[in-house]
Amino acid sequence: MQVTVHQDKCVASGQCVLAAQDVFDQRDEDGVAVLLDERPPTELHDDVRQAAAVCPALAITPAGS
């Protein structure tokens, strides 16, 4: 799985961190999402898909499986 975060769309909701805290974090100054692991291990794929599904800004793309 290759994860992409579109920071220009991000609304700093932090839902991605709540869903997958080993893969996403937020910038201290404005809360914009930061990708910690663009190729997360298989056991985190469901969490990453959930992060993408709940992102209210559609700012996360998990490609591949």
């Binding site: 700093a12 909701s13 932090g14 961190v17 709540l18 937020q26 910038r27 201290d28 404005d30 809360g31």
Partner: peptide, 9 residues
């Protein structure tokens, strides 16, 4: 305060 808020949730 997005980061602080997420923690205080």
């Amino acid at each position: 305060s997005p980061c602080e808020l997420r923690r205080l949730r």
